[in-house]
Design a protein around this nucleic acid. Structure first.
Lengths: 359, 359
DNA sequence: GCTAGGATTGAGACCGGACTCACATTGGGG
DNA sequence: CCCCAATGTGAGTCCGGTCTCAATCCTAGC
């Protein structure tokens, strides 16, 4: 029978050692399965541990091994299914390798990100996966590397940081998808993103996010081939809450020379854009074509189903976690798996009326 | 092996103390802002700390304060927006109160949950929020309470566990929504859930999840008032992957006396159910009515927009985290905020054809 | 029977902060 | 001018493990 003492302190190696009538060192060896321990001692110790329901204090263990078996993950918004899925990939992979995940949300706010990284560092996580809110403001990430902590970037690169980055080639994908829109006859293509910037978009401006930079680059290149260019009235950043997104959407669709196609930078924006389009009584793709980044299950259920740029988000999470864990364990970086985005043509992109009229 | 081991130890209080020419104790006091320290010493210590970029080791700190300022969150699936949002609520609240979140995914697997809880306990988290995969198998949760660790349950209750639980009254909501379906003339109402059970549903069986139990109770009560009852052919548990959900959907819609309304237990199931309905060439709500638990933004974008049972998921996360933190800080539990589910009637529920024929 | 050398074992030193305790210093009150 | 209380300060312990090191056992080999 077990002594049922409602004691407050947890059971420690010392307690187990006493119960097993051996020294703390021997108990620790038997428990930790290292060093030389006689069968007799091992048995007594394990029995005592079982009896007392001993559980090692991971904090103490971490403290002198220097390993916490924990990785920190810093993302902009777990509520966004994009990160939800990526987090799932990270978390599954981490668990398989015996690591835990501390998750911090930044709301895409750089100062929150700086705090998050600091907290994680203070907690001595073994490594970090960060989806940097800014590709410019990267001092805190630099510090991670100075502290010699493994770091992997997710989704976005960070300027001048020699950190491994897991992301798909967005410039190429943006180019390809823009060409597709052009080939359908679109000449006025709007791009709406929540990215916060100091001032409205102007051609050639440097933006804070590598993701958006790449997309704009790809888009610009494709446009250029047709003698067109990115313009301030169609590239709309700083889309904030749902209402502001709807208002921007109305804007680009009601201007004198309206957009005939709208590209939504992510799934969250897409929802509001589509609502706005429906509110205007416009039909997709009859009146306006629609394209969004990220592929979620629900995009197949709308009428029409949406044409999207699918990213292998889960796999990106897996890749980021594997890469980080390799770094932590001091193994050589593996060959990066091929992570490619795909353009999935469903029904939301069509030929604009103006062009149809000519044919 | 190469000598690539510069392993620079981090700066400790001792280092700061030396640099400031004071004792470790004094440095600790100045840094920790406790005890008595002369202005002169404080200044020197803080300057030295700044100079050396000293950062306290939270692990060490946790070790002898006994507080880790970390809470553990165990959910079935972060990929599911339901938990994504709840996690967001938890995480926002925790951050505000100075706590971090360690997140573990269980895939609704009880043994994974047992492991998760154990790991979190070993890591000495200050408290736990768990969405228990089973309301029956709760030994591991019992152990949390024995270890005197604060525990809050999310979404589901756990049998015979005196833990604070944050959930909405699902029985009432299920009753109300079923009455609504009945009032529209439905008599054959299917309910599809992924809940794993040993055997197919039979009336009166005890299921593992309090959520589902409540829903079935509420549904059963409403049906009973009309002289109807839950039946094995319409209550379908164990819906697994997308294909199995589609197959079950086809089943209930093609049986001799088919269901005229389908209720999906969550947003993930809903996607496959609707796909199956579309594949069968049936229209909503003309041929079959549809109702789902949880309200996501995309449910407004389908044609028709979906009628749903909305739960204040984010607020539930907030409530769970606040309750937990109150417990951790030893404060009295606050009055639980009113968390009620709402039936949002959009366009996916209508009168079945058979009934229409009579009118 | 005696000894070398591997197997065991216990004491105690860390890890990096928080905190106790005993020993200065000061300074205000009597 | 002395005494006591209120600071300041440093040495050292503790948290709960891991790990080093020297001492002790034990058994085979000669």
């Amino acid at each position: 029978m077990s002594s049922n003492n409602p004691r407050r302190r947890d059971v420690t190696v010392a307690d187990v050692a006493k119960a097993a009538q051996v020294s703390k060192a021997q108990a620790a060896r038997a428990l930790g399965n290292y060093g030389a321990v006689s069968d007799d001692v091992r048995e007594r110790v394990l029995a005592a541990a079982e009896e007392l329901a001993y559980r090692p204090n991971e904090l103490a263990r971490s403290m002198n091994t220097g390993k916490s078996h924990t990785i920190g993950v810093v993302v902009g918004d777990i509520e966004n299914p994009h990160f939800g899925l990526a987090t799932r990939g990270i978390s599954d992979t981490a668990k398989k390798a015996g690591f835990n995940v501390i998750l911090i949300n930044t709301d895409e706010d750089v100062s929150a990100e700086v705090d998050a990284v600091q907290v994680l560092l203070d907690k001595r996580v073994d490594g970090l996966i960060v989806a940097p809110a800014s590709s410019v403001n990267t001092g805190h990430l630099q510090r991670v590397q100075e502290a010699a902590r493994p770091l992997v970037l997710l989704d976005r690169t960070a300027g001048g940081l020699a950190a491994q980055t897991v992301a798909v080639d967005m410039a190429g994908m943006a180019y390809e998808s823009t060409r597709y829109l052009l080939s359908e006859g679109h000449r006025r293509i709007a791009f709406i993103s929540t990215l916060k910037t100091e001032s409205p978009f102007t051609p050639g401006m440097v933006v804070d996010s590598s993701q958006i930079t790449e997309r704009l680059d790809g888009m610009g290149r494709a446009l250029g081939e047709e003698g067109l260019a990115l313009s301030a009235d169609l590239v709309r950043l700083n889309a904030g809450d749902a209402e502001s997104i709807r208002s921007i959407t109305r804007d680009v669709l009601l201007m004198p020379e309206p957009a005939t196609a709208v590209v939504a930078s992510d799934g969250l924006i897409a929802l509001s854009v589509i609502e706005a389009i429906q509110e205007l009584g416009l039909s997709i793709p009859g009146d306006v074509s629609f394209l969004m980044y990220d592929d979620f299950a629900w995009t197949r259920l709308t009428t029409p189903p949406l044409t999207v740029i699918a990213q292998p988000v889960y796999d990106m999470g897996v890749a980021a976690a594997s890469a980080l864990i390799r770094q932590i364990e001091g193994r050589k970086p593996a060959v990066a798996p091929d992570l490619v985005a795909r353009l999935i043509k469903r029904g939301s992109v069509g030929t604009p009326r103006a062009v149809k009229a000519y044919t």
